[in-house]
Nucleic acid binder design. Structure first.
Lengths: 340, 340
DNA sequence: ATGAAAGCGCTAACAA
DNA sequence: TTGTTAGCGCTTTCAT
């Protein structure tokens, strides 16, 4: 037997009060006498009444829904991030409506329309680059938006990232201090600000020491492409091989390590040092034991949610760009000192 | 400058038609003349009008929102599943509202209330066991619900799982055919039907050959606990060690392999064969090269969505339990024949 | 095919 | 503090 949904009207009748009294009892910060409150609560629980969020959203203009736009999330650190995001928002009375956007530009546009149709109170764009055109549309629609793990120059939009530039630089200094002399880089997808900033910091760090970048490959943040880039980088004469490789994220770093060990019989870090970026859980697994720059996911999430909710709740907050610094986590995949 | 939202009324005025005409133009399967349709579309696009999903949901009773309940999703194959689920639903005009439920019973209850408040058209419970009490509440509330990757005996609720029993059995037969004689099992969280079914199939498979289970540990689907269980299983005399271990999922199997190799110096599969379950992407990585039972995620998702939408769209569909069989993927972590 | 009118379930003035 | 009243933006009869 499927029960129809109970309305506030029905509760009101049973409690012998007006419908608005019921509404007030269920509206935080509204005024109702103890007597009324009690009568209403009793009737409501007898009937199994719960307020209808959608109706509430429509009249109040606040849906308590946050639209989350994500690109396809196959790799890396998203599951964790998504979980924390959702959990953090849930604690603060919001829920996440998920929208998947293929990287093709048109798709992101359509998706944005769908999002706005749902009257979301805010948008989090995770690992998706919004064109400045889209940023504008969000502003025009009056929907606060925060970019997570992507940033944009000249943007009037808030963004939270790890300090990718500083992280990349840190890696360069570390590898140089370890006595490496032929230092290479394997890049992620070049359209991503994370990739660009990590590489920029890294190259500037090498430059600090007057060292050129020894070799460069592109893995597009994908496992198989990283393997291919590795093979190519290590295809020539042994003298032409790097003695250290900084890989733009952990996921690709695993591919690099596997390829180097399984196909070339190299030992890490004796023959070559590897450093990654993200510190995903698998980086700590004994098979990889990867030295890597940690993304402080927890703090990034918290900042994202704080900024978004403050933009939602206090109007007229100015957009802000937050970069969260993370430590280089030393493990066994990179040697620390000159001697082999 | 934030533009206020355009209403159908405003479009109607500009197009010189009634508000209901506008509604019809945007309602699939409603009747409007070509002339009207054209005028309305023109006015709408000039104004940037889009129907308000929430208002539509309220009056029509269909929100086109699916509530997805997930437990914390740290491990294994959820990112992929979540993505496919969301993508599949999005293609069919629905969106996913995410609800995180800690495994504690009370929490799942609260979460269910929140879900129902949003007038979702359906619920997918992914890897969460709903008590029969909760199943009842969903039925009473008239909200179709499908369990994904969990099943329940005596349940009036639809469920989609892989054929865990058959999978476990397949592993037993495979290990026996490979000439293993001391076959052990490392269990996941015992509250999960996936764990129970995999183990039941496995043990029945051993029994088919008259072989007892040689040893058993519990890893609760967690990396560190699996490591601990491994150390304990391999702590005594060398004669007391298994020559094959079936691990209830891949995530734990990686922990087992790492522990065996790094701490005990064993070689896989020469000293011991390892078989996992799920076939997550990392199972194919060279460092693990794990023989494992594949979960056909894609098909499971498709079945889940099909069942859910058919329950939503055609009333009076009977609940059904679907088990999707997956192959044993042979890789290098388990030897195939008797000789070492 | 179209317009007028009646709500969907709720919140938020406004009076009392 | 409470009840009355007016909508939120839309779909859906019901006439025309």
């Amino acid at each position: 037997m499927t029960h129809a949904r109970i309305t506030s009207q029905e509760v009101a009748e049973r409690a012998g009060v007006s419908q608005s009294a019921v509404s007030r009892v269920f509206t935080p910060g509204a005024s109702a006498s103890a007597r009324t409150t009690e009568k209403v609560r009793k009737a409501a629980s007898e009937l199994g009444y719960r307020p209808n969020s959608l109706a509430r959203a429509m009249v109040s203009g606040k849906s308590r829904i946050i639209g989350l736009v994500v690109a396809y999330l196959q790799n890396q650190f998203y599951p964790e991030a998504l979980e924390k995001l959702s959990s953090e928002l849930q604690e603060r009375g919001y829920h996440v409506l998920v929208f998947l956007a293929a990287s093709t530009a048109g798709n992101v546009d359509d998706v944005l329309d769908e999002i706005l149709d749902y009257q979301v109170d805010g948008i989090i764009a995770a690992s998706v680059a919004l064109s400045s055109d889209l940023s504008n549309r969000c502003r025009i629609a009056g929907v606060p938006t925060v970019m997570f793990n992507r940033s944009q120059d000249y943007s009037a939009m808030s963004a939270v990232t790890s300090d990718n530039y500083a992280g990349g630089r840190k890696v360069a200094h570390f590898l140089i201090a370890g006595g490496h002399e032929r230092i290479a880089f394997i890049a992620g997808w070049e359209g991503a600000s994370t990739q660009r900033d990590r590489e920029a910091g890294f190259c500037d760090g090498l430059r600090d020491a007057g060292l050129p970048l020894f070799a460069r490959g592109v893995g597009n943040f994908e496992f198989d492409q990283a393997r291919r880039a590795t093979r190519q980088m290590f295809s020539g004469d042994r003298d032409s091989w790097p003695d250290a490789v900084f890989v733009a994220n952990d996921h690709m770093a695993f591919a690099v390590m596997d390829t180097l060990r399984a196909e070339l019989g190299l030992t890490i870090p004796d023959d070559v040092s590897i450093v990654g970026y993200d510190d995903v859980p698998a980086a700590a697994w004994p098979s990889y034991d990867l030295t890597t720059v940690r993304q402080r996911t927890e703090q990034m999430i918290k900042a994202t949610v704080d900024i978004l909710l403050s933009e939602i709740e206090n109007q007229g907050v100015v957009p802000c760009q937050v970069k969260i610094d993370g430590p280089l986590v030393l493990r066994g995949s990179a040697r620390l000192t000159k001697g082999r």
